[in-house]
Each structure stands twice: as structure tokens, then as C-alpha cells.
């Protein structure tokens, strides 16, 4: 299922920041992770990811550095900054509030959501 662009514009950065919470990652790694997680719902495409990364970098939420990977090739790794961690925390809070509101409205069935989240990698704070 594809998420509408406007919705993705809000969710995408939080998802990327969340993926970087565990450690620095390079572009292709992020694309793969986003495509694999959440049944591909957050698969935003490569053409969207890199501009988003540059934007996050411009905003100071992430920083980039060229490093040599396992294969000996150089890759650009992105990692969270302190500001990025705060931004992620705020984003999680907001998405959690939104999810609770949706649950209250009956848009999201709470049990189903929790059940699905429990079997997949943790991308946000809604399930915590």
C-alpha cells in the first residue's frame, strides 16, 4: 500500500531518524530498511530518500561522513545528532498522540495494531 505524499512528508523523516537511532547507516541501507519494514508502507523510493537526507542534514538532525565500508568501498554514512534525537523524540510523541486519537475514534483497532507491531522491527513509539 502506498501512503499519500502529504502524509509521507510527515512520517518519512521520523521513520528515517528512527532507523538511524540504532547507528549510522548509508543511503542504500536506509532504502532497503524502509522497503522491508512495515510491509513496504514506508518505502519512499530512492528519489525521495536522498533529498530528505539532505534536508535533515541541512536542518542539523543528522550528519554525514564518508567512510570505508566492509567491502572496501567508500560510502556516505548518516548518523543522528543531538538535535536529531530530540526531533525524533518529539516526532514519536506526536505520532503516538495521533495514533491514540485514531484508536479513540475507532480508526485504528488498538489490539490489531499492537499485535502487528510486536512481530516487526520497532519503527516508532506507537507500540511502546
Amino acid at each position: 500500500m502506498r501512503i499519500e505524499r502529504e502524509l509521507m512528508r510527515g512520517a518519512g523523516p521520523v521513520a528515517v531518524l528512527k532507523l538511524l537511532e540504532d547507528g549510522a547507516k548509508y543511503g542504500y541501507e536506509l532504502v532497503t530498511a524502509l522497503a522491508e519494514h512495515a510491509e513496504g508502507v514506508l518505502d519512499m523510493g530512492q528519489s525521495t530518500l536522498y533529498p530528505m537526507l539532505y534536508n535533515l542534514e541541512a536542518q542539523g538532525y543528522i550528519k554525514a561522513s564518508w567512510e570505508e565500508g566492509d567491502t572496501g568501498r567508500q560510502r556516505k554514512y548518516y548518523s543522528l545528532t543531538a538535535d536529531g534525537k530530540r526531533r525524533l523524540s518529539d516526532g514519536i510523541e506526536q505520532w503516538r498522540a495521533l495514533a491514540n486519537a485514531f484508536i479513540d475514534l475507532g480508526i485504528l483497532p488498538s489490539t490489531t495494531t499492537r499485535g502487528k507491531r510486536s512481530s516487526r522491527p520497532n519503527l516508532g513509539g506507537a507500540s511502546s
Partner: peptide, 14 residues
């Protein structure tokens, strides 16, 4: 360019 090259090389490797 370097980043895109690295990206596609990862794709080719995969």
C-alpha cells in the same frame, strides 16, 4: 555523484 555511485554499486552488489 559519489553518493549515487555508491548507492548504485550497492544495488549492483545486491
Amino acid at each position: 555523484a559519489r553518493e549515487l555511485i555508491a548507492h548504485f554499486e550497492d544495488g549492483v552488489q545486491a
